[in-house]
C-alpha cells in the first residue's frame, strides 16, 4: 500500500512540476497537440490534400496525431524517469519503477482528456456525432501507451549503460512520425507498402482510434495481438535492463 501512496504523490508532484501553479499550465497541455494538429491541417490545405472517403480533416488529423503523441511522449517521459528525477531517489520509498508508473499514468490521462476535449469541440462545431466504437478508441490509446512504456523502459535501461542513448533517442524515434499513419491510412497504400507498414506496431493504435471514431473506416489491417506482443516484449526487455542496471544508479 506504501507504493500506491508513493505513485499517487509522484503523479501529483509531476502534475505540479509540468503544468505549474497556473491554470494556463493545463491549457498548454491542450494547446500543444492542438497547435500541431492545426499546423498539419494548414499544410494539408495548402497541398490540396483531402482525407479519404467521408472523414473530416480535423478528425482525421486528431485521431492520428493524438495516439502518436501519447506513444512518443510516454517514450520520452519514461526514458527520462531516472535521470530526470535523481533527487527523488534519495527517498528510499521512491523506486525508479514508481516514477515510471506515475509518468505513464499522467501521460495517459492527459491525452485521454485532450482527446475528449478536442474531439468534443469538433463534434459540437460540426453538429454531428460519429463515434463508431468507443472500445476500439480505448484499446488504441492503451496500446499506444504500452508501446511507449516498453520503448521508454528500453531507453531508460540503455541510458544507464551509456549516455549516448539520450542523444540517439530523438533521431531513432523520428521515423515513427512518418510511418505511423498520421498522414496516410493503411487502406490507401499499395499492397506492397501495406505489408511493410504493418510491421510498425505504432500504426495499429492509430488505425484503431480512427476505426473507433469513423464508422466507415476500413481497419482490416490492424492486428491487436501483434501490437500487444511487441509492447509486452519491449516491456519485458526494458524491465530486465532495469534490473541489470539498477545497482549502477548514482544518486547525487
Amino acid at each position: 500500500m506504501g507504493q500506491i501512496n508513493v505513485i499517487n504523490a509522484l503523479v501529483l508532484r509531476e502534475t505540479r512540476t509540468r503544468f505549474g501553479h497556473h491554470q494556463l499550465g493545463y491549457a498548454w497541455a491542450l494547446a500543444e497537440p492542438a497547435l500541431m494538429i492545426l499546423t498539419f491541417l494548414g499544410m494539408f490545405a495548402v497541398a490540396g490534400r483531402q482525407p479519404a472517403s467521408d472523414m473530416d480533416s480535423f478528425g482525421y488529423m486528431a485521431t492520428g496525431i493524438l495516439p502518436y503523441l501519447l506513444f512518443s511522449k510516454t517514450t520520452v517521459q519514461v526514458s527520462q524517469a531516472i535521470n530526470g528525477n535523481k533527487g527523488l531517489l534519495f527517498y528510499p520509498q521512491v523506486k525508479p519503477l514508481d516514477v515510471v508508473f506515475a509518468r505513464i499514468a499522467l501521460e495517459f490521462s492527459t491525452y485521454v482528456v485532450v482527446f475528449l476535449l478536442l474531439m468534443g469541440a469538433n463534434v459540437m462545431l460540426r453538429h454531428e456525432v460519429s463515434v463508431s466504437d468507443p472500445l476500439l478508441i480505448a484499446v488504441g490509446f492503451a496500446l499506444a501507451s504500452l508501446l511507449g512504456a516498453g520503448l521508454g523502459l528500453i531507453f531508460m535501461g540503455l541510458g544507464q549503460l551509456s549516455n549516448v542513448t539520450e542523444r540517439a533517442r530523438g533521431p531513432l524515434m523520428r521515423p515513427f512520425f512518418w510511418v505511423s499513419g498520421l498522414f496516410f491510412t493503411v487502406d490507401s497504400l499499395s499492397p506492397r507498402f501495406q505489408e511493410m507498414v504493418v510491421y510498425n506496431p505504432v500504426i495499429h493504435p492509430v488505425e484503431l482510434v480512427r476505426a473507433g471514431w469513423f464508422s466507415t473506416y476500413d481497419d482490416t489491417y490492424t492486428n491487436i495481438p501483434y501490437a500487444l506482443q511487441c509492447a509486452l516484449w519491449m516491456i519485458l526487455i526494458g524491465l530486465a535492463l532495469e534490473v541489470v542496471t539498477r545497482r549502477r544508479i548514482e544518486v547525487t
Binding site: L12, R13, R16, T17, G20, H21, G87, Y91, V251
Partner: peptide, 15 residues
C-alpha cells in the same frame, strides 16, 4: 537533492 526547483517549499513538503 530531493527537492524539485520548480516546486515551492510547501509542495515539496507535501510530497
Amino acid at each position: 537533492g530531493g527537492f524539485s526547483g520548480a516546486l515551492t517549499g510547501e509542495d515539496n513538503c507535501r510530497f
